[in-house]
Design a protein around this nucleic acid. Structure first.
Lengths: 224, 224, 224, 224
DNA sequence: CATGAATGAGGCTTCATTCAT
DNA sequence: GATGAATGAAGCCTCATTCAT
């Protein structure tokens, strides 16, 4: 039985994670030294090491913490009785993302997590799980649209989910790099595309010339 | 070995950049030590420093080099006389991206560049320029579609360009994190969305509830 | 080993400075690597860096530490009630200097400090302050001699102070380079000069042929 | 028989030494890299190495070159038929020294040579020889003064030479560190001391209290 | 002779981590 | 549990020197 309450431990943990996140936003995972986190958190080296076993552990915890944040945005939207038009769903989500970009916002370090996942297997696994969850939400959106008859019965909700996930992910990057896009831009662009008739008139069959470039076999998505 | 041709210098430069890129793909910018790059390039420390002033300089050069690669994909597509359906344009682009993800492919380190730009002003500037160029291409695609009458005359090509840029950017991240999406998935999802009627029936006016979340004023995009 | 007393810190500081000084005497500021200082001090790299921010900082501290040492010699002599003959003052000072040339003695690195001050502005400033202080002491000696009536009332104590400062400074260099001069030599030479009548019979007026060579205007010395 | 004339070689040598000296004055022996000397001299690495075997060799050559410079000053003065008053001799010498302190002047690096001699045996030997020569000149001055009957017959010219050498050496240091002393200051201070009667009335015998501090036995000076 | 690209040992410094208090 | 001084491996970079051209 610990001398300090579990509650106290959790508060300390968050205090450290908050400090670390502020540092990471400012200087990145790698350029942030633990000494800086000690200073920012107001705790000593030993104290921090009492909660996290290593710097990598700290980074992993930061990444893990971002998961519920992203989910919360979507959940809020999906909980509405009737589903709004798709451009509005996307725009609302984008607005939620922007809100979470405020100073110290967790979204600001998402790209660092994605980049890290690129070459770090452990982080890859963690980020893949988070990302997969997010995509599942979007796939479910597509399914509900299909249920409502707004999407063709033979449409593939997984493919639609993948596109919607891409849009939001790319929006984050674009917003961080160029800063000149907002939820309204996204809504406007989406509305234009959705109400146009720009797509191919029919499904492109297998054996298409494109297929030569496709590296991976088409697997069932979101199965894991 | 003095008095070497400019050609020789350029070859050496590429030799170093290639080696660095391979290392960065494997271990990331920060976890890659210069010693590893020396070894991978087969050159000595001094030799590398004769071409790049610092590790940051090397990273910057790697980022700069990715620009023409991305442009090349789009240029190829746009040069076609008649514009293919939009879902196919996107799919072809995605296929081009996947091709460039092969081992040592520059696209693999793009997320690292985006992440770095998040907190490193110098890199931010470089990446913003590249990203802006790419978006200009997509905006031009939208303009050509509008010229062809396939997009409503009052549509905003910038907004459409922003969405298309997001799709591709997000596709890269999704592909790297989950690996289960390919050009065909993207095409299918796009086709479904484009041929549906999921958008709002009319423009959402100013004063909309959404606006509270919009942090930035709507500026004209790609103006610079 | 945390929460150490200020006293402990100061002891460590001196431990490092002592080690550094021994190294500098043996191999000079520049040829001494920090590794050698770590070894000599029995501390790790990190420990030393906890007390000094850089090698330059260490050198500066060594230079600063020499000030009180030099002052102490003179103070002792001046504290005597009646001032001894000038040749003896100089000889006593020289003897004090020689005493401080023993192995590890701070005087041994004085020339290195002077040399460094020649091209390093920061060190120049530090050394100039120390040197100026020393000269002030000698000027005060001249003033007391004047008060005692042993120096002409119209003599310039600053000029005399400058000469006496030169004698001692030059003695240090000569002693280190040739090793065959000691306090007694200095005393004997001084006595001969002081009791002779080798000077010009009267002040050389302004406009003298010499003046062409004088680069600087005669400013009041030791004003700062 | 060399392809290039000896004359050409010597010109190149001086070109290199001049460049090196300018660098040394600016940044010191140790902080000056050979690359800087290559640049300053307008020659390539290989070319410089064709004339000097190493950096140390270059430094040694610079030091050796300073010898005739110092001698020249004194020789000029001593060649005069009748010896001027001592304060004027010293002042003239000081003026000559100051002249040679102009930008790139060899005197500016003399302290670096003295400092180096402090711990580098090879340089010590070279500098000791030069310094000894200079002192011989001053001893000869004392001897001529004695011959002229201006110095007591039982005075020790070596001791007087040692003091005069100290004065000039210390003057150089003082001038470099404080900048506010010139030949006239020195002349004035010397005149005051020479025409006063500040010395002990009689020789202090052996067994004096001072002797305890004397580290070295009194050897005959300038014997080598 | 001259060039200057290349070498690679070694210098300074940082920083994740430990542990005595 | 908390502290923070200490550790020391490892990182980035410089620079005296060589040698193929």
């Amino acid at each position: 039985m610990p001398r300090v309450s579990e509650e106290h431990r959790e508060r300390r943990r968050q205090q450290i994670l908050d400090a670390a996140q502020r540092c990471f936003v400012r200087k990145g995972f790698h350029k942030t030294s633990l000494q800086e986190i000690f200073r920012e958190s107001g705790l000593s080296a030993g104290a921090v090491y009492g909660y996290f076993r290593s710097k990598d552990d700290l980074i992993r915890a930061i990444a893990a913490r971002s998961e519920p944040q992203v989910s919360a945005i979507l959940e809020e939207i999906l909980d509405t009785g009737e589903l709004p038009p798709l451009d509005e769903i996307v725009a609302r989500f984008a607005a939620g993302v922007i809100e979470r970009m405020g100073s110290g916002g967790g979204i600001l370090i998402a790209p660092q997590g994605w980049a890290l996942a690129t070459y770090n297997p452990a982080v890859h696994e963690a980020m893949a799980r988070i990302f997969s969850n997010t995509r599942s939400w979007w796939t479910r959106v597509a399914e509900r649209l299909q249920d409502d008859g707004r999407l063709a019965p033979d449409a593939d909700p997984h493919a639609v989910g993948a596109v919607l996930t891409s849009i939001i992910t790319g929006f984050i990057v674009q917003r961080l790099l160029l800063g000149d896009v907002d939820a309204e831009t996204l809504r406007e662009g989406m509305r234009t595309l959705l109400s146009s008739d720009l797509g191919s008139s029919e499904a492109v069959g297998v054996g298409n010339e494109l297929d030569r470039a496709l590296a991976l076999p088409v697997r069932s998505l979101d199965a894991g």
